[in-house]
């Protein structure tokens, strides 16, 4: 799944990408287990073909897209994004995909559409933890429509020039580089445009800890831990100093204007 580098401003950080081995073995994908090593261990059961994504809700042209069709809908490009997890670690990952806006333009959002909801697969047969009550399944996420339309918001099908490994959210996932990782829904089955703010999985689980926006922000600590610094996975060995976390994960120049006038402490 090789693709030429993206020309979208900010889409290619010059930082050293994280080792593929680390990026594909240290994952949060609760459907397959709560330990970081669980997804790589258990996600082989996930069936990524056939796969369809429903695009519905407040759009002119709702549709049902097969994964092969979706792969051809836009020109695939490679984007090297920083990924910052809410838990305080980060990676640099070369993704392959195209802007979510490409798909949204095609289905033509209605004037009343204000948000986009992402519903991910919750298959009890292949995902062991979906039988638990650890989260309210299926895992859902959401963005404001203008965030979803931002060119940096990526619909990803691959990473490191290859098809996404199951544990990284195959066959299709979202990547929103300026928000904490959990906003980037994996293994998406439905994209729904709505007028009301969609409920999101982690916000439902702990309202005061995970807000709807969840923009990376060193000034707004998680109630249980600081967000001022981060550990870059694979960088400098055990005794490496942590990095300072940047506002909007370093994408302020590209996305800062989406939040003009907003109190980011209130809209965390």
């Amino acid at each position: 799944l090789a693709a030429p580098p993206s020309v979208v401003p900010g889409a290619t950080t010059p930082e050293q990408p994280t080792a593929y081995q680390d990026a594909s073995s240290y994952n949060n994908f609760y459907e397959f287990g709560t330990d970081k090593a669980d997804p790589a261990r258990h996600a082989h059961t996930l069936k990524t073909r056939p796969w369809t994504v429903m695009v519905e809700g407040l759009v002119q042209k709702p549709g049902r897209y097969g994964i092969e069709e979706l792969l051809k809908l836009g020109a695939l490009e490679e984007r090297i994004y920083r990924l910052r997890c809410v838990e305080g670690w980060s990676m640099v990952i070369p993704w392959v995909g195209y802007s979510l806006a490409t798909l949204l333009h095609r289905v033509q959002p209605l004037g009343s559409a204000k948000y986009v909801e992402f519903v991910t697969l919750a298959d009890k047969a292949t995902m062991p933890m979906v039988n638990s009550r650890i989260l309210d399944w299926p895992y859902t996420e959401g963005l404001r429509l203008d965030e979803a339309m931002h060119p940096l918001t990526l619909l990803a099908f691959g990473m490191y020039g290859e098809v996404l490994p199951n544990q990284n959210g195959a066959p299709v996932r979202l990547v929103v580089p300026w928000k904490y990782g959990f906003k980037s829904a994996k293994s998406i089955v439905t994209i729904r445009l709505t007028e009301q703010v969609p409920a999101t999985a982690w916000n439902k689980a702990a309202r005061h800890e995970y807000g709807f926006y969840s923009n990376v922000n060193p000034e707004v600590p998680h109630p249980r831990w600081s967000q001022a610094t981060e550990r870059r996975i694979g960088e400098g060995g055990l005794f490496a100093k942590k990095r300072k976390t940047l506002l909007f994960n370093g994408y302020e120049a590209q996305v800062g204007q989406l939040y003009t006038g907003m109190d980011l402490k209130k809209w965390y």
Partner: peptide, 15 residues
């Protein structure tokens, strides 16, 4: 595990 680098992607956290 530390010397053979088999503690996973985040050895500090693992320790």
């Amino acid at each position: 595990g530390t010397t053979t680098n088999t503690l996973g992607a985040n050895p500090a956290e693992a320790l």
